[in-house]
Nucleic acid binder design. Structure first.
Lengths: 338, 338
DNA sequence: TTTTAAATTGGGAACGTTCACACTTCCACG
DNA sequence: CGTGGAAGTGTGAACGTTCCCAATTTAAAA
């Protein structure tokens, strides 16, 4: 390969255009108080030299990095994939870059990533998953904007954008009830902070509202992945009084449940109805297609970025603020309807 | 929030430790020629002040960013999710960061991202997907290391790590043949550069080797996603002479095909065998579970990072080099065996 | 015309590092 | 006891910007 040539700097532009460094800088940054004539000259010189400002120097001078870090627990989790896709799209439009921070739920890694804020390597951090308790993170708020996305912790002292999990579970459970189901089971998904708690409340609320009894045997906690769904099915299959419907805390759980049911010769939704959560692509790949709850990921991404930019531009605005989004019911074929 | 306090700089360490700036810098960078006594003093001061070097200043001085960009066409594509997970893991270990570049197959965006190299914003770029032809990208090689991962283009003049798609398709097709299948269909997947071409060659090679005729009607090109799989099934269902096995260029295609088959009352694999590609999680969520070809993503990530680091450290080593990995057959239940 | 304000322009200083160089000290060796 | 070289240390310069301030020009108001 060719030897990397010495970079073109602002001084080269100065020489070619015949104006001063200050003026060139003003042109680059679209500042006022530059005559049209010189502005044109500078632009031509920049064009001709294919000059691009050195970002490191700009960062050093400005203390702005035009970079935002996103902390997720696992990039390969499809939910985060979709969320990242959304965040990236919005962030790029505004001239920012996205730094990928994958924690695998390591508390230490999360802290290391948060330190990016202290060292001025990023302008802000989006916490899309949280491995530590807020107590252990809160100090970082002093070093730059943090926005939470996808989860709530009532203690959090920054803007949080997330789903109303209680309402989501309520809608789902209500959908069962409206279609004549009275014996409804609930899988809590992994009890990540208070997401599960909220969902269970929504589930119970819907039951109570319709005068249905809550049966502890039908509530499963810490169910995770397809394996978890299969396990739940095995439990259900062995019950004397079985539920006719299962609200599950994730599409994988639902798919696992359905798979186990079909494998045991059951018919879905005739013998048992199942509802997923998250509206992941898998839901349409299976038969019957999964009725599920959809998170408004696009909206979540948009608002997160908006709040982040606001926080970056006006450090005052970094206050506790919960933005709660509504879930959507996606009706497909895994729920027996009237 | 508290007002962001003025950052602690090397000068603060100088004052507290009572040595010179140069010595502090030497301690920070683990350079020799520092007495144990002063080294200790400096370390204590750093500890006490919780000092962290300003990365922007280091970058400006060093022209090293300790950041690597990864260009992918879509983060939400599960394959890239897995690959990113792997890349991130290895990169972090070496003290680098990962900048996420999502192109959505936009040629312009890809070019914009490649420009990060020119502006010294990253030390290197991993091209995990390629929206442009190599001709239009090659100039960027002059500005820093580029490594290709996940695809080959014979013209590419940098290290490339990828799957031997020809062999992968050969293995898959052979598996059908070894289990008594003689009428085997092929879905090419999206014809992304020469991936599809290689696969088709492997498919044809296996057939020829066993003296089987190639039937053009059974070769489907540009099939994509579950919808594509369904479409292929509809085609197959209407044939007078139907294949008994389908090799598909992606798990989604395979799942779509199976779904359509089951919906039409077919039995899989009794009535028709199906093989996927990529070994995505979906494959285990469906019934029958999908027999598929697995890409060695972990290995691919590891080697990619290794080549990238080599290229960064020794700019000479940036030459054309193809590293071809072997695929794995994952046997599950979607292929009728003898 | 004179005064005043605004627009335009140039150049020094600063951002926080690391590097190159110069200087001192120390020790080994003849 | 002088000499050479290595180890240890401090300081000025440089990396490439942007900001601030002062100087100059221009335009508007009186």
């Amino acid at each position: 390969m060719k030897i990397k040539t010495k970079a073109i700097t602002i001084e080269d532009v100065v020489r070619l255009s015949g104006v001063s460094r200050g003026t060139v800088s003003r042109v680059i940054n679209d500042h006022p108080h530059v005559s049209e004539e010189k502005r044109k000259k500078v632009k031509e010189a920049i064009e001709q030299l294919d000059y691009m400002p050195n970002v490191s120097a700009q960062r050093l001078r400005n203390i702005k990095t035009k970079t935002i870090a996103v902390i997720v627990s696992s990039i390969s989790n499809p939910f985060f994939g979709l969320l990242l896709e959304e965040l990236e799209k919005d962030v790029i439009k505004l001239g920012y870059q996205l730094l990928l921070c994958n924690t695998r739920n390591s508390k230490k890694k999360e802290i290391d990533f948060l330190r990016l804020l202290i060292t001025n390597q990023v302008d802000g951090i989006i916490l899309a998953s949280m491995a530590n308790y807020w107590e252990n993170i809160k100090e970082f708020v002093n070093y730059g904007p943090i926005v939470c996305c996808n989860q709530f912790d009532p203690k959090v002292e920054v803007p949080s954008i997330g789903l109303d999990h209680e309402e989501a579970a309520y809608i789902g459970t209500k959908h069962f009830i409206d279609n004549g189901h009275e014996k409804i089971a609930f899988c809590g998904g992994i009890s990540q902070f208070n997401i599960s708690v909220g969902r269970k409340q929504g589930y119970e609320k819907a039951l109570k509202e319709s005068g249905l009894k809550i049966n502890k045997d039908w509530i499963f906690d810490n169910v995770y992945g397809t394996a978890g769904g299969i396990e739940v099915f095995n439990n259900v299959a062995n019950m004397r009084v079985r539920p006719t419907a299962v609200f599950s805390g994730g599409d994988e759980i639902a798919v696992g449940f359905i798979k186990a049911a079909l494998d045991s010769g059951w018919k879905v939704p005739q013998d048992i109805s199942v509802m997923g959560f998250d509206n992941q692509p898998i839901g349409t790949f299976v038969s019957p297609e999964l009725t599920t709850i959809q998170q408004p990921i696009e909206q979540m991404g948009k608002i997160t970025i908006q709040k982040m930019i606001e926080s970056i531009n006006n450090i005052q605005s970094m206050r506790s603020e919960e933005i709660i989004l509504k879930a959507n019911l996606i009706e497909r074929n895994s729920v027996k309807t009237i």
